[in-house]
Computed example of a mutant assay.
Amino acid sequence: MIHIDGQLAIRTITGRNGKFNVGRLATSIGEFVIKDALLDQYSEGKYRGNFAISEIRPSYYSTGGRLVVEIRAKVDSMTLEDVDNLTAEDAAQLSPSEPDPLDEEPVRPSPPEAPRETRNPTPTRAAQMPADDAPFGMDSSSSSTKHSQPNENAELFGTIWPLGSEVRLDTTVDRQRLRAQCARLGELGYELDFKLQLWKRQPQP
């Protein structure tokens, strides 16, 4: 593990899996491509700070009939001081045809299917409730949606749910889940404080 000062240019690219971030880290010992999941929390820009690098290795991918070889560094953590806008030169160094790092990760096996007799459990009382029993002024479908959303959030965020006014994400979770968490936090009115690496709930207007 080495700690080194540098400047990290992050570019946001839209691929078949949605938006993702890639970075190029310029340091006193060289420039390295960064494709770690923790980048997906950040907005596009050029960040200056100190970076903890645990591995430097060659990597390659093919695109448009070309074989691209790059030197990739694995960043375990970083302490950021400030951010500038990405320049045209910075953006040019990070090609929009970069492959999504999610496609490089091995596919996780699907969980085994439940036995046939347990696939369709008996509906709960709430599911069986007729529309007339829904809360006053609400139909049964809107009541169901209201109660299902917290359950979806609980499943997405796991042990950090329910969310407080400040949220620190676990960047070691799988990349797809981390991206979904970042997107959901934005929908819920949170913004990332990149210096503290905390998502903070913004006051409602």
Rank of each mutant, 00 (worst) to 15 (best):
Q197A: 11
K46S: 05
Q7R: 15
Y60W: 13
G189D: 01
A52G: 08
L188D: 05
D100K: 00
S141Q: 15
H147L: 14
K195F: 04
S95T: 10
G65T: 13
L163Q: 03
V83G: 02
E55W: 12
K200H: 12
W161I: 02
G45N: 00
A180C: 05
K195C: 09
V69G: 07
L86P: 00
D40Y: 07
D133Q: 15
L102D: 09
D82K: 08
D170E: 08
S165K: 06
E31M: 11
L86Q: 01
E152Y: 04
L196P: 07
N21M: 03
D76W: 02
R11T: 03
K19Q: 12
A88C: 01
R24V: 06
Q128D: 12
R11A: 08
F194C: 03
L67V: 15
R177K: 08
D133R: 15
S62M: 13
T14W: 03
S54W: 09
S62V: 13
G23V: 03
A183L: 11
V167N: 06
N151A: 15
I13N: 04
P162V: 03
K19H: 08
I56L: 15
L169F: 00
P121C: 10
L86T: 02
P111Q: 08
L198S: 11
P150W: 01
L198Q: 13
S43G: 15
Q93W: 04
F157G: 01
A9L: 04
Y42K: 06
Y47N: 03
L38W: 12
Q202H: 03
E191S: 05
S54L: 10
T12W: 05
N151H: 14
A26I: 10
M78K: 05
